[in-house]
Design a binder for these strands. Sequence first.
DNA 1: AAGCATGGTTCGCCCTGCGAACCAACCAGA
DNA 2: TCTGGTTGGTTCGCAGGGCGAACCATGCTT
Lengths: 158, 158
Amino acid sequence: MGSVEGNLGVVSALVRSSFLVSAVYAESAREYRLTPQQGQLLCVLMAQPYRISELSAMLRLAKSSLTELVDRTSQRGLVVREPDPDDRRAVRVSLTEQGSELGEAFYLATCERVDQLPSGLDAAERATLGELLSRVVRDNNVPTTFPEWDDTAPATRG
Amino acid sequence: MGSVEGNLGVVSALVRSSFLVSAVYAESAREYRLTPQQGQLLCVLMAQPYRISELSAMLRLAKSSLTELVDRTSQRGLVVREPDPDDRRAVRVSLTEQGSELGEAFYLATCERVDQLPSGLDAAERATLGELLSRVVRDNNVPTTFPEWDDTAPATRG
DNA sequence: AAGCATGGTTCGCCCTGCGAACCAACCAGA
DNA sequence: TCTGGTTGGTTCGCAGGGCGAACCATGCTT
């Protein structure tokens, strides 16, 4: 374990690969004139509208941070606050049409970029990596802040 | 591929696991009154002193960003600028004694926390995950911004 | 009706990152 | 030896991001 020449232990491999993916995510966001946090918000909202408190819980940020992130993205016309019919205190944050388009484009471009990272692995190894990481993600209750990408469809493979 | 119930494709798994590791890294940093960027700088400098331009290249940040990150960490007494004997324009950034201690403690604590993430995998699966991620890291030339952790030594296993 | 809890906002503060502009030092070529 | 281009690092204005305290409106329970 960790003794094969040049191989990292799982801990360092997780941390360094996290840096790698974060860097790629940031590069992709920059391409769409987004910050990583703005891109992440758009990806989260692709599934459905959320309340500020729900976004706060999913992203593990203070509510004030979400208030102001939503402020900035709504000023760009990407998201909108709407009253929550069930609770007059609450707002529901949803994507505008422009936000949907930009979010989708950012999401797909990010998937393409990230898809290149394990290109040195063969199909079986990719599947194994995906399966093992999926279990880590599931075991640690990682919220769905990035949609599932269907990378088996022919049109989505580069 | 991606078709086993509940499993993600490798792309989404990489992105979501990156969010997970980033969150754990930030939590660990907070425990030591560090920001993730400050913690990362300390980890990088554990290996050796570096020039601002070298740190800029490793961390893929503007030189001005490193100038100011070094400013903030040196104000805390964690790092120090020293003249580069080979080039009077340059400075070498190195850890102070306090910075070494804090960096080491942060690094070890982070390793312990990250080590918990794949606890649902058995030893063979951990080894496979480490091997596959190592190859992704190596293939993408990820700089060594997080030291290798010897997780086979008995004293380092929780 | 009252008190507690919750949803969200405001704001001061600090951290971070960028890019333009700048200065000092280095290096190669004439 | 001199000159011009390159490099290393700094300063500063700007924008984004995150936190926590304080606050207000609303919901809920007693």
